[in-house]
Every structure is written in C-alpha cells, then in structure tokens.
C-alpha cells in the first residue's frame, strides 16, 4: 500500500469520524444531564434532515436559511418529544423512561414513513459543499472540511455553556440530583427542556451534514447512525462531551481501516462498532474518558 493511498484512507476515516463525533455529542449531552439514553436521537436527526430537505426543495429557500429553520424546528420538535414521552415519567424508574424512548423512536419512524413516503429522497447539495479539493494525490470533498470545523466550534460552545454559565451550572446540578436541584430553586423542567433543545439542534446539524455527505434520505436513516453514535458516546465515556468526539473518531477511522486493510472482512464493518463496544465495556466500563464514580445509595 502506497503512502498516498494510506493518506487517502486516513482522510476518508477522519471525515467519517468527524461526522460520527458530531452526532455523538448530542447523544452524550442528553445522557450526561438526564442519565437517559435517548433512543429517539437518531429519529430526531432524521426529522431535522427532512425539514432541511423540504425547506430547500418545496419552499425553495436558500440553503443557509433552510439549515437555520431546520435547526429551530427540530429544536421545538425535540422539546415536544421530551414533554410528551419523557416528562410524565420523570419520577418513574429509569427503565420505564427507556422503554418510552424506544416507543417514541418507533412512533417517529413510522410517522415519517407515512408522511415522507418510503422512497428515498435526494438531498440537494449547495456547490460550496460539493467541490473536490486535491492535496497531492489525496482527494477530499469540501463538505469534509466543514464537518470537523463545525464539530469543533459546537464542542467549544457546549463546553463553555456547560462549564461557565448559570444555565450550565443548573444543568450540572440537575444531572447530579433532581430533588436537591429543585430545592436550590432550579426549575428542573426548564433545564431538561433546554438540554433536549440543544441535543436536537445538534441532531439537526448532524443530519444536515450527513445529508450533504450522503444525499440519500429515507425515514429509517437515523437507525444505524443512532446506534453507532450511541456506541461512540459509550466508548468515549457516556456523558463526557470530549469523550464523544474521541469515540466518534475511533469508530470512523476503525471502520474505514477495516475495509481498507482487511477487505475480506467488509461484511463485518458494522459489527466492528459492536465489537468495540463489548471490548470497551469489558475493559473500561466507564469509557475512555469516563470517571469511575461510585454509585450513590
């Protein structure tokens, strides 16, 4: 394998990994605050992509406006899902909320099949995202430069919000203990909604980037990315935003390298993610960046 070939594969892996990282941030964010695995995250991601698609094709809006609208509407949609499926179960055992999350996920998927139809839609790609850039012998499509930049910016904003603002402080308090946070005068419901809103904006952003990279929209498109980003989040240490980014890159690079160097194992590409999950859970259950916390009694 020549050097340029290896560099090309590396570029392929990094661009796929940064997309996974972007999606995993949203996943880990909701988990970090609510200790809830939001199985509907992949479907909110799908809804966001479809909203952007329809604003561009049916309403003929410019792409930047469509992306903005998609993020706002998806944010509202995410909050509605939270109010309908999770809020009524705030004081129930965690397992009930998880089952409710799975139910919400199925409901959204099937509604999408009815509303959007089962046939795939082609996501329109603005020219600036579709240019091929050549560096030596390595070809990279321009969208692959935007994805890591956007991921990086969002990462910085999120870290700032969570660590340095009053809302962030409230979020961290809620993540530790609902009751105590409420006693301290924090409006728990508002904080949870806020978290979900941010998580959904991230999902929409991820969906739009996904659409620009793989312009093939189907109602079940959120299923596999949802699972993989859940794994990326767990590998990095679920609840840890920087860990999610790390997990996303490991997953993306791993997938590409398996296909590149062991072509006979191509069929097991998706299995790689799950094997990685099992190995991490066995060796380092808290994830690569996670802290081992002793369970409260």
């Amino acid at each position: 394998m020549g050097m340029s070939n290896f560099l090309q594969q590396l570029a392929n892996g990094i661009s796929l990994g940064s997309l996974y990282a972007l999606l995993a941030i949203g996943y880990t964010m909701v988990y970090g605050i609510l200790r809830l695995i939001n199985f509907a995250h992949g479907d909110i991601f799908m809804v966001g992509t479809y909203i952007a698609f329809y604003s561009m094709t049916s309403f003929l809006l410019p792409w930047w406006l469509s992306f903005l609208i998609a993020m706002i509407l998806t944010c509202i949609f995410g909050i509605i899902v939270e109010k309908a499926a999770y809020k009524p179960l705030r004081n129930s055992p965690r397992i009930s909320v998880m089952i409710s999350a799975i139910g919400a996920s199925f409901l959204i998927e099937n509604l999408a099949i009815v509303l959007f139809g089962g046939r795939p839609k082609a996501f329109p790609i603005p020219d600036m995202f579709n240019k091929v850039v050549k560096i030596g012998n390595v070809s990279i499509v321009s969208v692959n430069f935007y994805i890591p930049i956007i991921t990086g910016i969002l990462l910085l904003i999120l870290l700032y919000v969570v660590n340095n603002t009053k809302t962030g402080m409230a979020m961290r308090a809620v993540s530790k203990d609902y009751e105590a946070a409420r006693l301290m005068g924090i409006d728990v419901n508002k904080i949870v909604s806020f978290t979900f809103g941010i998580g959904s904006v991230l999902a929409a952003m991820g969906g739009i980037m996904w659409g620009l990279k793989f312009p093939n929209l189907v109602p079940l498109m959120g299923l596999m990315p949802g699972l993989k980003c859940f794994i990326a989040a767990v590998v990095g240490g679920i609840g840890d935003i920087r860990g999610a980014v790390l997990g996303g890159f490991i997953l993306g690079l791993g997938e590409i390298m398996i296909v590149a160097f062991l072509p006979s194992l191509t069929g097991y590409r998706d299995a790689f993610a799950f094997i990685l999950l099992i190995v991490i859970l066995l060796l380092k259950p808290a994830g690569l960046m996670g802290k081992n916390l002793t369970e409260k009694v």
Binding site: N5, Q9, N12, G13, S15, K213, I256, P263
Partner: peptide, 8 residues
C-alpha cells in the same frame, strides 16, 4: 453510505 475505503 460510505464506500470511500473500497473505492480507494
């Protein structure tokens, strides 16, 4: 969705 590794 991603075929870049095979194609490379």
């Amino acid at each position: 969705q991603d075929f870049t590794a095979q194609l490379t």
